[in-house]
């Protein structure tokens, strides 16, 4: 297939996918290529700085932000398989440099190029269905930053609905936080665990086979509790489902 749009997308893979779930990054690349997008991967990329920023260490976050902006300076589109990291880029990077007009402009230009994975497919590529097939009952967890910072709500759901051979079921209280919240999960573990426990109960109530989301941090949290509870439910990033083609 030729690349009709001639689009080149630069992948920001996120720390958690790079270090813990590299197969998600591979799926993102596969899906984008399947759609005819040329994929680049700037290897100098680092953490987006969100863990520092959310902990109050703003000047340290700024150091990492500059590094990321530099790594992607030639990119046309930046695709991020995480609503949370994408929100850091788009909603918070410009604010980091408010006092420096030159850097502020750089950060603004950078942030305008950033898209969360499902958002990129639907809004930029105008793709509502990716040729893919799988099986089993799937349910979707909406991650907080993707929904409330980026305003990405229905895009991943419509993409999931388009996968051949699967069934979907609504997750009750889909948009309630899973309790991860980065360092919150270890600073206030009792609260985080109580929130997680509700999320797990809701997931279990669906009797699904697969829990899908667009943030591996939520899925690490919920998935970690599911395996601890000896549940058979698997967690997958949306890109992994869209990458599947059972023949």
């Amino acid at each position: 297939m030729v690349n009709p749009k001639g689009i080149t997308a630069s992948l920001y893979v996120t720390c958690i996918v790079d270090q813990l779930y590299p197969q998600v990054g591979v799926s993102v690349v596969n899906v984008l290529r399947k759609l005819g997008v040329h994929v680049e991967f700037p290897v100098d990329q680092s953490c987006c700085g969100q863990p520092l920023f959310n902990s109050g260490y703003v000047s340290q976050a700024r150091e990492l932000a500059l590094r990321v902006i530099e790594s992607f300076k030639d990119s046309e589109y930046i695709v991020v398989p995480s609503g949370s990291c994408a929100a850091m880029f788009r909603e918070f990077y410009p604010g980091l440099f408010e006092s420096d007009p030159k850097l502020h402009k750089l950060a603004q230009d950078f942030s305008k190029k950033v898209y969360e994975f499902s958002e990129f497919l639907v809004e930029v590529l105008n793709v509502n269905q990716v040729k893919s097939s799988s099986d089993g009952l799937h349910t979707f967890h909406t991650s907080c930053h993707m929904l409330r910072e980026l305003g990405v709500k229905n895009q991943p759901l419509s993409l999931l609905e388009g996968v051949q051979g699967i069934q979907t079921v609504d997750l009750p209280h889909r948009d309630v936080c899973c309790g991860f919240g980065g360092t919150f999960s270890v600073k206030y573990p009792h609260i985080s665990e109580a929130m997680l426990s509700d999320k797990v109960d809701n997931v279990l109530s669906t009797s699904c086979d697969i829990l899908v989301s667009c943030d591996m941090s939520c899925l690490m949290n919920i998935g970690g509790a599911l395996t601890r509870n000896k549940s058979e439910i698997k967690v997958k990033h949306l890109a992994e489902i869209l990458d599947e083609e059972s023949s």
């Binding site: 893979v13 996918v17 790079d18 270090q19 813990l20 779930y21 590299p22 197969q23 990054g25 591979v26 690349v29 991967f41 290897v43 573990p189 665990e193 997680l196 690490m220 949290n221 998935g223 970690g224 509790a225 395996t227 601890r228």
Partner: peptide, 18 residues
Amino acid sequence: RSRDLPKLPDKTFHQIWK
């Protein structure tokens, strides 16, 4: 204390890419 951690994979995405 309440959740498992995933296994660190043999290769990071950086390595797979390369």
